[in-house]
Nucleic acid binder design. Structure first.
Lengths: 203, 203
DNA sequence: TCCTAGCTTTACCATTTGGTCAAAAAGTGA
DNA sequence: TCACTTTTTGACCAAATGGTAAAGCTAGGA
């Protein structure tokens, strides 16, 4: 029988791969790639270490799978920024989506931050292939909005960096924020909307 | 002889402790605490591993020494924000100092970011003891500036978070920025000045 | 009921890692 | 030069880590 049947979709496969990736997300986002161990992941997943290696060929594959999955959803908010919409509304909605994402997927944000902080050794190809073209395209759109006078003149690259940094900060630096402010922060939305509204408004 | 002479200041001691801390800053900032090894640090310092442990009792002590040193300089820019000065000028000057710092001390910024990202296990006491009081005090100052109408109403906590995140982003996410923009960024200053000017200006 | 493919575990291995120790080497003052 | 202190090193260790191999278990179809 030349074609071997690989059942990646059996119920057990699906459930266990999901468990492993969920556990790995916990561990990698908390300790970085080199700081995370297969034993930690195994314990968090409720499986044995060799069992992890039955589903993934090695530690790096687990990490890579997570990064690949992440890349898919990570770019969505920016993709959805529509060049035909109202510029101010589009940018502010993008800020809101990024902020929501930081709140709903803080582990993913920290996984990404860890990877970039450490020089993006496993992610650089993705950045070049996926993020860079999208980034360039959206920079062009913003530049055109500026040129048309629909928003105040602004450097598109730095604008996007500011949006990324301010929104992701609430996930990535949560440990610091927890120390500094007692009750949970909920009014970041208002602040960031004002921050970016004020630099973009024409008048 | 009851009092033992500990020569921490011999020329050799000074030189080697400096070399070790400089090498450790390289390694810790690039891999995080758990991802860094004493061997890497030893090689980067041009010393042997046991020699490292002659100067520092263990790996954690090297890391802690770095964090303590860092904490001293890290707060300076905020300390220097003078409540008797012109509010707008003071805040914009603070932004500029933070940005300069991210450019001049990117390894320190990444060391800090790594530590916070991973839950600040060794830094939380410092944050509570040193950063928090300063943060609260400066938030009060900014709030008073708002109340006096000297700057536009703004949430001081979020304003500071925005300043931290946008400035440090250029150090912490340098690997990503390198992929996205060809020539080196020098006009971040202009962008950030405008960003924070526009949300703070009255009228 | 038995067979088989798929799943799990136990035992194990080589390498890496933080750390120790005693001896050797290099300074240093008289 | 000699005696003494400080610094450096090579050999070593126990624990942790990524990974392997083979045997054992389990579910489900014939």
């Amino acid at each position: 029988m030349p074609d071997r049947k690989i059942k990646k979709n059996s119920r057990i496969q699906q459930r266990n791969r999901y468990r492993i990736l969920d556990a790995a997300l916990d561990v990698f986002s908390a300790h970085g790639y080199r700081g995370a161990t297969l034993d930690q992941i195994a314990i968090a997943a409720g499986l044995s270490k060799p069992n992890i290696l039955y589903y993934f060929s090695n530690k790096e594959q687990v990490h890579l799978t997570l990064l690949n999955q992440l890349m898919e959803t990570w770019l969505d908010p920016l993709v959805d920024m529509n060049e035909d919409g109202d510029p101010m509304a589009e940018i502010l909605a993008y800020v809101q989506r990024k902020l929501d994402m930081a709140r709903e997927l803080p582990r993913e944000s920290r996984l990404f931050a860890n990877e970039i902080l450490q020089g993006a050794p496993r992610m650089k190809p993705h950045l070049t292939a996926d993020l860079k073209p999208l980034f360039d395209q959206k920079c062009t759109v913003i530049q055109e909005w500026c040129n048309a006078g629909k928003i105040a003149p602004v450097n598109p690259q730095h604008l996007i960096f500011s949006i990324w940094s301010t929104t992701q900060h609430y996930a990535d630096f949560a440990a610091q924020i927890d120390v500094l402010v007692r009750p949970k922060i909920e009014d970041a939305d208002t602040h960031l909307r004002a921050l970016f509204f004020n630099i973009l408004k024409t008048s």
